[in-house]
Design a protein around this nucleic acid. Structure first.
Lengths: 229, 229
DNA sequence: TTAAGAATATGATAATTATCAGTTTTTACC
DNA sequence: GGTAAAAACTGATAATTATCATATTCTTAA
């Protein structure tokens, strides 16, 4: 299903909302709609990107391979996120791989459209800057968490993050289901350690599960753990 | 000692080089030259900044207090760096504290000058974007290192970083001397652990010291350790 | 110059986390 | 529906890292 960017709701969540009608028309004419299946890569670390991807549906993990052979998930991108922006602006190869966590719909926007608008539309440039500034702050927070919190605290935080950013269904189960391995790669720990901690959380009543689905059953408990009680 | 931004060499290293003569003149007229003594704060986490700081001389650590009461150094800013940019652009309180690691000279530039130029000069906006994109990439790398490398590897990396970014004197001693505690806060570990690892590196011949000064005496050894041999 | 305080260093020990090996459960596909 | 493969789980153990206690060295200021 294709449609015009001008009417795309997703745009409201990202920097493209600062584009003029004319710029948006050009983007809409040039964009390429794409479906990406769960597990497929949108792009891989080290690749040169010819444009950015605007996420209409689904979730992608942005990860980087460490020298020890493990993947570290740096960020999860969902509806409204623009991926590849950093690399297109810097004119560098991407530092991250983007892999679909579930089935996705994205629009590929050629970099010329973005770079042109940056040069001609200060509002757009400032809007992109604001988003990047926000990302940078979040990255700083992640650095502090990674270095100063225990694995247990980070796992707890990950679940709170998943709930706050991707929501839960009417029964309270997290809408975004990640594999234990993916969670471990977000948290930066071994898969077994992650599993063990999840088991522990279940025993303590912080989490409960039903098949693959996970529910936060004691938010307060998790929050206190994160804060160090 | 004050002087005009137009003739300031430091500017060549940061986004201010993309300013027009006129913009630069305004900045130069408005800027406030400041000396900051070792250990003093330029600004503290949570503060609202009215402008940015351009570093002319000296080094500042940008750090964030963790909930466990420890400081995590997220970045070291030296000659040419612009501090506070992220927070001024996002219009948010700073997420980091800036503390002088040695005596510094900085110029404070009111935010109006920056925000005006962003709106009126696309070249400047794009240049700032490029810098921020670069910072973001570096932050991603730090996240991966923090989560996937051992403390020992991170300490080794820290010394290579200090040499590559701040240089060494004619005898090979690192020009930037950090306390063991500061190094620990960069690496994200306990001070004692950091000291122990430095002792071990000395025994293995990777490092040697003379009073407070530290010299990398076996770069290859350090590099191999970082890569996991 | 010397005494106090800070920084550096080391030892002993506990806590955390990773690794390896193996089992059970779930999923996907013929 | 049955089966092979993948994912989730558990136990035992080793490795890493933090913590606490204390000693030593270096700085600084009266």
């Amino acid at each position: 299903m294709e449609s015009r960017c001008e009417h795309c709701i997703v745009r409201q969540f990202n920097s493209l909302r600062a584009m003029t009608k004319d710029e948006l028309k050009k983007v809409s004419d040039a964009k390429i709609y794409k479906k990406v299946k769960k597990g497929e890569a949108l792009f891989e670390e080290g690749q040169k990107l010819d444009g950015v991807y605007c996420v209409r549906e689904g979730v992608s993990k942005l990860s980087k391979l460490s020298t020890n052979g493990k993947d570290q998930v740096v960020k999860l991108a969902t509806k409204g996120a623009v991926m590849g922006q950093r690399s297109v602006i810097a004119g560098e190869h991407t530092n991250l791989s983007a892999i679909a966590v579930n089935d996705m719909e994205v629009c590929f926007v050629p970099k010329e459209n973005i770079l042109d608008a940056l040069q001609k539309n200060p509002d757009f440039a400032v809007e992109v800057l604001r988003h990047m500034a926000h990302d940078l702050k979040e990255a700083d927070d992640v650095i502090v968490n990674m270095s100063q919190k225990t694995v247990k605290q980070r796992v707890a935080e990950a679940f709170l993050y998943l709930r706050n950013n991707f929501g839960e269904d009417h029964e309270g189960y997290l809408l975004l289901t990640l594999s234990r391995e993916d969670i471990a790669n977000v948290v930066g720990t071994a898969t077994e350690s992650c599993i063990r901690i999840i088991s522990e959380f279940k025993k303590k009543g912080y989490l409960s599960t039903s098949g693959k689905k996970i529910k936060i059953s004691d938010e307060k408990g998790l929050v206190e753990l994160v804060q160090g009680f």
